[in-house]
Computed example of a mutant assay.
Amino acid sequence: MSDQAPGAVLRGAVDLSSLRSRPTAPAAGASAPEEGGALPLVFDVTDASFPQALELSRTVPVVVDLWAEWCGPCKQLSPVLEKVVTELGGRLVLAKVDVDANPQLAQGFRAQSIPMVVALVAGQPVPLFNGAVPEQQVREVFAQLLQLAAQHGVTGTVPVGEPGEGAEEPAEPELPPLHQEAYDAIENGDYATAVSAYERALAQNPRDEQARAGLGQVRLLQRVDGADLQAARAAAAAAPLDVEAQFAVADLDLSGGHVDDAFSRLLDLFAVLPADERGPVRERLLELFGLVGDADPRVARARGRLASLLF
């Protein structure tokens, strides 16, 4: 999806298995959603109450903001996240995790630096981005997250306030017509139509970064749709210089959360190919970098290696 812009497929970059069966009763003072009660759009999550957030993610995407009181960039980012989530009118919720008070969650999400923002979709983690990013990038990442969630059947919403509670009904954000066409096509599994819609949007406005990101995501979904990972790995192993065979495994690795493996495979291939055959590999690497997001340290490392191979 970013972390970083989201590599918009469910990615296993974090391991939450140890947290799934923890006690569901929230710790004292926690404000996780209560079963049967009103559901806030922004709430705190603890080590103890995390399973509730996982379960909620089967209905509506849950954005998780890992922060700490001492973290200056966290204080810049959190209000932006809350603003954008609120404006989306219940299509996303925001779960805030104080990493100092919840070390098991910090470890489960592998929070080496904060702020760190991930999402939960259908009980699975989706890295989004690290660090304080601009509001526009947050909006773009969340738009991509909603598209990803739709692919996995997570299209629910939560109420944004009852009459008399003083809550204003956020306006449903309208997508540009071609973006809406792409979004509807993705929901229906019609990737070809979604690709066409995003390509037309880019033809109209080459600076439409949201369309560019959406196009990259849909192309990846299109390429991995119905692919057999074991068969792809066997083909790549049998033909280590076959560019298309290596592309197939890199796509599947990225979509499965093995981001470093995907980058390393293509960089290793780039290193051994003749100079006049490297172009397609470089282009595919740049496309995958865009999916994962420039703020991701894995992208920075891979870009550094690519630069060393080029020069």
Rank of each mutant, 00 (worst) to 15 (best):
V160A: 11
Q180D: 14
E168R: 15
E140T: 13
V138D: 01
A185I: 08
Y183F: 14
E172Q: 12
D184V: 09
E140V: 13
A182I: 00
Y183I: 00
T155W: 01
G189M: 11
P176D: 10
T157H: 12
A149I: 15
E169R: 15
D190H: 09
N188T: 14
L178S: 07
A185R: 04
E135P: 08
P177I: 08
L146V: 07
A167H: 12
E174C: 03
A149H: 00
E140F: 09
E187H: 15
F142D: 03
A167P: 07
A171W: 10
H152V: 05
E140M: 15
I186E: 00
E165D: 14
T155A: 14
A143V: 01
L148F: 05
D190T: 14
A149E: 00
A149L: 13
P173T: 00
Q180P: 01
Q147P: 08
R139G: 01
H152R: 10
L145I: 09
H152T: 04
A150N: 10
E135T: 02
D184K: 13
G164F: 02
E135K: 13
V138E: 00
P170Y: 09
P173H: 01
P177N: 10
V141R: 01
A171M: 12
V160K: 07
E169S: 11
G166H: 09
E169G: 08
A167D: 15
A182C: 07
L145F: 06
T155I: 08
G156C: 08
V158W: 11
A171V: 13
F142T: 03
V154N: 06
H152N: 13
A150H: 11
Q180E: 14
P159D: 14
G166K: 11
H179A: 12
H179Y: 06
P170F: 06
H179K: 11
V160S: 11
R139V: 00
V160M: 10
G161D: 02
P159S: 14
G189A: 07
E165L: 08
G166L: 02
E165C: 07
P159C: 11
L148M: 09
G153S: 07
F142Q: 03
V138S: 05
A149K: 02
F142E: 06
V141Y: 00
G161P: 03
A167Y: 05
E174A: 13
V141I: 13
P163F: 02
E140R: 13
V154M: 04
E135R: 10
H152S: 09
P134M: 00
Y191S: 15
E135A: 07
E174L: 03
I186P: 00
R139W: 01
G166P: 06
P163G: 02
L175Y: 02
L145P: 09
G156H: 07
V138K: 01
I186S: 01
A143G: 04
E181Q: 14
L145Q: 08
P173Y: 00
Y183M: 14
I186M: 13
V160I: 10
Y183D: 15
G164R: 12
I186L: 14
Q147C: 12
E172C: 05
E162G: 05
Y183W: 15
E135Y: 02
P159T: 06
G156Y: 04
G164P: 01
A167M: 09
Q144C: 04
E140A: 15
A143W: 09
E169C: 13
V141G: 03
G164K: 12
G161Y: 01
R139I: 00
E169I: 15
